[in-house]
Design a protein around this nucleic acid. Structure first.
Lengths: 117, 117
DNA sequence: TGTTTTATAAAGTAAATACTTAATTAAAAA
DNA sequence: TTTTTAATTAAGTATTTACTTTATAAAACA
């Protein structure tokens, strides 16, 4: 996992930037900035963090910097939540196995009792 | 989305706590603390943040506080990444439609040319 | 009851974060 | 070539964060 995807996603401005990029594919920094009330420098700093987390790609086009979302990095986020689910269900499977074993044991005990009656 | 799930997940200690809870279902604060090098107070503060983000549940048991993961909140994280994927693919679908329309147009142009030949 | 266990709350601090303004870079246009 | 456009980097600042130590709470145990 690219070191701090989660820190990068912690900021609502950066999440909104990613959502914009998911909707529009490619956007120059200036257009991203238009959607917010803060300075272009502030947005540039957010974009730098998104770049460093490998959540976006940049391409130079004349004076512009064109940003795109990096879907691979987004996949990593999904993988983390999936791995959480797997840990969770692996535990549930183990619990289920124990419960089934318990049920068999009870069923056997029941049978033995019936046989002795 | 319970306001700052993402901020709660930004800290590696808190993510590790969640992973522990995913593996072990229920754990008292003291056992969680055992896995880390920081003070119990520091862990208590992390647990508070996880509680406020609704990522965990607590149950009092004698002096202990028993923590469990709240799977509903984890689902919200998956929903966000899924919604990102949806935005992304909705855009791809639209692009595909445009491309298909282009192809039809070209095919028609081709036909008309053949007819005139 | 007084003491121990388990945990949290409160107060203080160093480092990180999200902004600002000022300065710099580099391509395009006049 | 000078100016404009688009964006970044640098420097400074207020707030937030992640810890610490100290103090408090509440159940269990002697």
């Amino acid at each position: 996992m690219a070191s701090d995807i989660f820190s990068a996603l912690a900021d609502p401005t950066r999440r909104k930037i990613l959502e914009m990029l998911a909707d529009y594919d490619e956007l120059p920094a200036s257009e991203i900035h238009n959607q917010f009330q803060v300075s272009p420098q502030a947005i540039s700093q957010h974009l730098k963090i998104l770049r460093e987390a490998n959540l976006v790609h940049v391409e130079k086009r004349a004076q512009q910097r064109i940003y795109r979302i990096n879907t691979e990095a987004m996949v990593q986020l999904e993988q983390w939540s999936q791995s959480m689910r797997q840990r969770w269900s692996r535990r549930l499977d183990a619990l289920e196995a124990v419960l089934k074993a318990e049920m068999r044991k009870n069923a056997n005990a029941q049978n033995e009792q019936e046989e002795s009656e």
